[in-house]
Every structure is written in structure tokens, then in C-alpha cells.
């Protein structure tokens, strides 16, 4: 139904995250078996992620550890079919293992005020 179908999820997800649909390569979902990944701390604050350029290696398991300080921001990577609410005042870990090399824009998709439209960044997956 979509004119611009989202890229099927070439990504492995774990932790609290369970996105709907397109389970193509999201298989092997398991918290217990997941190896400990590299932790990348990210602060989400109106209207910025710090850092907003995230660089990971292809196949690397990383745990993006979000701390939303002032609002329940969103974290959405449409190309990877990843999205999660970052509850204000909480730590939200997002475990992922990107399989596809590329630059994937991410954005806050919970309207958080004047500047919401500028709250975005890029996840770069390097070979």
C-alpha cells in the first residue's frame, strides 16, 4: 500500500524493541543469546540527539542507550523499520546489529515542539 515501501528490516533487534511486521531478517530474536554489545550513549533532548552521528560496523552488535531528559521523544530509523519511544526520564536501550552498509537517517517521530522538525541524525553502517 505504500508508495515508498520501507526497506525490509535488514537488522537484528533485541532488548525491549519489537517492531511490527516485516519479520524477514529480524529472526533469531533472542535476548538471552545476544552477546553483550558495544554501548553507545545518546542523549535525547529537545531538539537534538547527542551524538546525532552514530557510526557502527557492519554486523557489530551495539546497544544504543538513550536517555530522554525532557520529553518522550521517538527514535525512528524508517529504512531499517526500527522505532521506539524514549520515555522521558528513563534509559531506553535499543540493541541492534546492522547488516546492511549505508547511511540511514533517523528522526524523532513524537512531536516535541518548535524545533521538532530539526531533531534527527544519521546512523552510518560501515563495512
Amino acid at each position: 500500500m505504500s508508495a515508498l515501501p520501507r526497506r525490509r528490516a535488514l537488522i537484528r533487534l533485541g532488548g525491549i524493541l519489537a517492531t511490527a511486521g516485516t519479520a524477514v531478517l529480524m529472526a533469531r530474536y533472542s535476548q538471552a543469546e545476544d552477546p553483550i554489545g558495544r554501548v553507545i550513549e545518546i542523549e535525547a533532548r529537545r531538539f537534538r540527539y547527542s551524538p546525532n552521528e552514530i557510526i557502527v560496523k557492519q554486523g557489530e552488535v551495539v546497544i544504543l542507550t538513550f536517555r530522554a531528559v525532557d520529553f518522550t521523544h521517538g527514535f525512528s530509523v524508517p529504512d531499517l523499520n526500527v522505532r521506539v519511544d524514549l520515555i522521558a526520564g528513563q534509559i531506553t536501550p535499543v540493541r541492534l546489529q546492522p547488516i546492511t552498509v549505508g547511511r540511514f537517517p533517523f528522526l524523532c517521530d513524537n512531536f516535541c515542539g518548535d524545533g521538532h522538525e530539526e531533531m534527527h541524525g544519521t546512523l552510518t553502517v560501515e563495512a
Binding site: 505504500s2 508508495a3 515508498l4 525512528s76 517521530d109 522538525e117
Partner: peptide, 16 residues
């Protein structure tokens, strides 16, 4: 109501 440009938030989350 459809995914026009999700990377710009040009969509409705349950539009489908």
C-alpha cells in the same frame, strides 16, 4: 495516511 517520506515524518503511524 500513507508512507510518503517516513524519514521526514511524512506519514501516519497507523495510517495503514
Amino acid at each position: 495516511l500513507f508512507d510518503l517520506a517516513p524519514k521526514w515524518d511524512w506519514a501516519t503511524r497507523d495510517g495503514a
